[in-house]
Design a protein around this nucleic acid. Structure first.
Lengths: 266, 266
DNA sequence: GCACATCAGTGCGGTAGCGCACGAAGCGAG
DNA sequence: CTCGCTTCGTGCGCTACCGCACTGATGTGC
């Protein structure tokens, strides 16, 4: 029903690796290194040295589509300061988020899982920076069956948990609870307590009405948990927000921490 | 809220490999071979010969719990005539199905993905037969990085699609549509047009009220698509049922067929 | 500094699904 | 045949969320 975030250019020409701030989220143009991505950061020196020369920095402007449903993936992406949503878009245009990927992960798992494509869309949900690697090289590394493979598989399992829990959450929990969960998950993937993000966008991700988000966000604001203003949302009381969320957030968080312990930053 | 399918014995003593019919679903005690499972059936001779001596036949009675949430998995299961549901059970006892696994797949992917456990429960949703293999041997085979690995990874990706689509379906589609999808998926995993299965059970799987299932099933019955009677549901018009389902069923089906083409039986 | 586009808030009728409570129908055990 | 259990059908009030329409705020570009 909803227009659901138009297609910007479908991964066309390289964006200049600069002015990241212009697009997006709260990172003070600090020097960006691939190893800010936790998966890359966890690679042993040998693997990292092999992969490093293949890494291309990419600016990730809000709304940019990395893969369309069914597209052959030519690269995988390692976000550093950006967040990418995996979104399914229905025939009637309505959408629902499947999972979200930030600096803890990688976009394009179906490349090494063997499918090459997925039925979902990958779209930048919070502008920033990422590094990408031609799929070919990543697969090569993966099929060495070394640390990189183990890492990627564990990450994939964590992602599976996230998807499963999304299904549960969609079934049983209120918009308000889901909003809390979603804010927390996004926050975890940015070193900040602020998101640049309209309610319309959030609604598209959650697959609910914009008005529903407005109402829930209003409630949270009255309670002093967040502050909202024209596309910028600031989280004031993170732990209270967590108390307001459903169990889903914590289940996923714990599973990520368990499977990928070195990520246990936030 | 709901009692959500009690724990029968949590994978304790081996059931006798016989009288499968007593528990479950429509298979006329035909000689059951491990290779009725499509993953096993697709293994090249060499791999199959290595694995074959490790296979233990297991009866899978309805309601039997293979893994509890967080349990260390000691075996993986290859269903042949049974169906297993992966279910998340919430703190308040309500539940929601994450995915379903039949003779096209394997239960226990987190074993080879590296996590060893998942936050979900695996429970027999339709009685029948399966073969199990000690986790140790499967991992060994997996880490040879040969055909078995490729097979399992592709299956895992298909499973991921199923979970993702479950999330979408939970968000956007009516109980009636979901019921259709669910029936079709179960049907695909049994060579039959009949399921033995109470509405209560289906409701638990879908995470909805029993009454909701009653109502939807009633509608479908009036339309002549199915026939219902005390725990036995017969599908009369499969293609009409598919027309009544949402797109989710087909998306998943196509993805399975694409990723695991040799399964394209049903 | 004004115009316009974007974003957020609000109201209102409609409805799908929930929780609850009860009753009827099939089926098995004794 | 009868009792009792399981399974299914139905009614009723309630709530969360939807779709729609419109208004009011807050930037942003010219």
């Amino acid at each position: 029903m909803k227009p659901a975030l138009g297609h910007l250019e479908p991964d066309s020409e390289p964006f200049v690796d600069s002015q990241v701030n212009e697009f997006g989220n709260s990172m003070e143009a600090r020097p960006d290194s691939p190893r800010q991505n936790h998966l890359l950061g966890a690679l042993p020196p040998e693997e990292w040295d092999r992969l490093r020369p293949r890494m291309e920095p990419r600016a990730m402007p809000l709304g940019h589509v990395l893969y369309e449903s069914g597209d052959a993936m030519r690269h995988v992406y390692f976000p550093t300061t950006s967040i990418v949503s995996l979104l399914y878009v229905m025939e009637d245009g309505a959408s629902a988020e499947i999972a979200i990927v930030g600096n803890e992960g990688i976009v394009g798992i179906s490349l090494f899982m063997g499918g090459e494509t997925t039925p979902s869309r990958a779209i930048v949900q919070s502008g920033g920076q990422a590094y990408r690697v031609p799929g070919h090289y990543l697969k090569e590394e993966f099929y060495r069956a070394g640390p990189m493979q183990r890492l990627l598989l564990r990450y994939t399992q964590a992602l599976i948990t996230q998807m499963a829990q999304t299904a549960v959450c969609n079934r049983h929990h209120s918009v308000e609870q889901q909003l809390c969960r979603w804010l927390l998950m996004s926050l975890d993937r940015l070193a900040s307590n602020q998101l640049r993000m309209t309610q319309e966008l959030i609604a598209n991700m959650l697959g609910v009405r914009r008005e529903g988000v407005t109402e829930s966000a209003g409630k949270l604001q009255k309670l002093g948990l967040i502050e909202y203003s024209r596309g910028t949302i600031t989280v004031l009381d993170r732990s209270a927000l967590q108390a307001h969320a459903c169990e889903c957030y914590e289940v996923v968080k714990k599973e990520f921490d368990r499977l990928l312990p070195w990520v246990t930053a936030t």
